[in-house]
Design a protein around this nucleic acid. Structure first.
Lengths: 343, 343
DNA sequence: CTGAAAGCGCTTACAG
DNA sequence: CTGAAAGCGCTTACAG
């Protein structure tokens, strides 16, 4: 496995004719080193193609420049946008980012936290909806607790009720409520909601916010009007198809996620229905692509990149009081051409 | 920084009343340990919320379970798809993935390789087009060389002429040629090509393949027919706008990337032109979203997820001969509704 | 099967 | 400013 091991600090020191301590100081610039020694060390390092062993360094007490990010799926556009923000900030701070996809498996999430803990990541970021699941909450807490006690920093994007950690909170409930109002204003009274799994807090919040606002206007959402499916494009397609098969009686479809809305529009089109002439469609998130769809999608715009930026900034920033900081981010309804006035 | 340090192997050993060596063996299952001792160790570890320090482990000689991935931009859908494949395989092998975005800055790429080398990543994957730039090639080689000598594994996706490492090679040239033929078959004779920066090998290959096939049919592509722009959606928009401003005389636009094609379609639409009635548009890559566009995009389909899977598999797989292995992946022309017969 | 000991490659008080 | 030494937390020959 190690045909020819990497050169070490000792090699460099020897080549430069100094002690390892001096070589270390010259390389790190921690202390003054006389210029001519410094030169020799740098030259030797260069010639030997020396790279410090990050593990030895971390073990010896230097801060470890890595932050761990756990998401559901790297290839989801929602996460891609959030990750963009994280990477930008990380790069400014010279941090390496370790990324893990859980594919929405709670156990895998816990396992990754454990691995990140083992890596002594400077911070761990949990991106995306938590689960409403006591077992998972307990297991996750059991990993996070000792990590925090050991000086680790944690921040999450989206609601994790049981986690007392810094949080960036998209206002899902309010955003969905605002969307309901906007759609009511367009004259719609009969809705179909395409939802993801109920165990996700994000789904619960968005569906709840939407339903409550409708109720306030005297419009009821019956259980049958809410279709649960996977939190993906194909999930949206499947849910919409199911609705179509048993007969659509709504004038407007609200998908709790843009990605699901995209699937829904595809399903509608495959059935020969036109958006918004036959039925209006709205989503949530404002992932970059929806602007370029035809028709462009009405949605609740979240500042996705900022979500990522704030999360890593929270984690990187000292939290003296050690109290939980919550950074709320409002969503804004953007009406585009996928929704029309109800007939 | 360390209010209460993590518990260590020694803590566990002490609590279990055994030596650290035995605790280590019980935890790792490397050697037989008498069941009752094993039990005690496991119980102690559980109670102390023990997690081994990955750095100490790596330093002491255990294989480090991390692979580094360097890409241009995590939030690019092309990369997101490739990354999906990488993550899947990584998760099967219980590997952690460290991801870095270079934002197409050659220097940053070299810096990241250096950091990954310092981390003693088990493998480094370079995803995306290389640059045609001797300085960069030299600098990158200087980092990769010692990494390889030290037992590191490297694989790349896309062409990196100067790198003698395992390669997954999309057949850009052939794919672009096939697209040219398909468009000629539709009757088109006047083309505009939306290209990314010429210094990217991928751009050179795709433009070259397209041009050569056209020439073979007696159709010339003049320099003015090729517009260079950023390798992004906005780059495609800008390039298309520029063409429109000085007057479009082509019946078909070929963007070297789907992402650029999406921008081009948006620009066309903003000018009131219809695709494909007024002008046909074709892309390259077949990122997932293009199927759901209206009209769906004609493109050269690449098995994006497989690109990522093959790359990490190549890197993880022993290479006895130490010769460069090249895994070619063909692209397939998929005609969708964004291209029509020329009038 | 188990333990004492050496060693992985650094950093950082501690002397000088 | 520089060096000898201890120590970070593991793993793994080496004895027993």
């Amino acid at each position: 496995m190690q045909p020819r091991p990497h050169s070490t600090l000792e090699d460099v020191a020897k080549a430069a004719g100094v002690s390892p301590a001096t070589a270390s100081r010259a390389l790190n610039g921690t202390t003054q080193v006389r210029p001519h020694l410094r030169e020799r060390v740098l030259k030797a390092a260069e010639e030997l193609a020396y790279t410090p062993n990050a593990h030895a360094r971390a073990l010896a007490g230097a801060a470890h420049r890595t932050v761990g990010v756990i998401c559901h799926d790297v290839s989801d556009p929602y996460f891609a946008a959030v990750a963009g923000g994280i990477m930008r900030v990380a790069s400014d701070h010279d941090l390496l980012v370790t990324l893990a996809s859980t594919f929405r498996d709670p156990e895998r999430e816990v396992a990754y936290v454990s691995m990140l803990r083992a890596e002594r990541a400077a911070a761990i970021l949990l991106i995306g909806s938590g689960f409403e699941n006591p077992d998972w909450e307990r297991a996750l807490g059991a990993e996070l607790e000792p990590y925090l006690k050991g000086g680790g920093r944690v921040a999450v994007v989206s609601r994790h009720r049981s986690l007392r950690v810094d949080t960036v909170l998209p206002e899902n409930r309010a955003g969905a409520g605002a969307m309901a109002r906007a759609l009511l204003d367009l004259g719609h009274r009969r809705f179909t909601v395409l939802a993801g799994p109920r165990t996700l807090t994000t789904v619960a919040d968005r569906v709840g916010g939407f339903r409550d606002e409708l109720r306030r206007a005297g419009v009821a959402l019956r259980p049958a009007d809410i279709v649960e499916s996977a939190f993906t494009r194909d999930g949206g397609y499947a849910a919409m198809t199911e609705v179509l098969t048993r007969g659509l009686d709504a004038t407007c479809v609200f998908a709790v996620t843009d990605v699901m809305a995209i699937g829904a529009v595809a399903a509608l089109r495959d059935r020969g229905l036109s958006v918004p002439a036959d039925v209006s469609v709205a989503g949530f998130d404002d992932i970059p692509i929806v602007r370029d769809l035809t028709p462009p999608l009405t949605t609740v715009a979240l500042p996705l990149q900022q979500l990522g930026e704030r999360a890593i900034e929270l984690a990187l920033t000292e939290n003296p009081g050690r109290r939980r900081r919550i950074h709320r981010m409002a969503g804004e309804v953007v009406i585009r051409a996928s929704t029309a006035k109800a007939l």
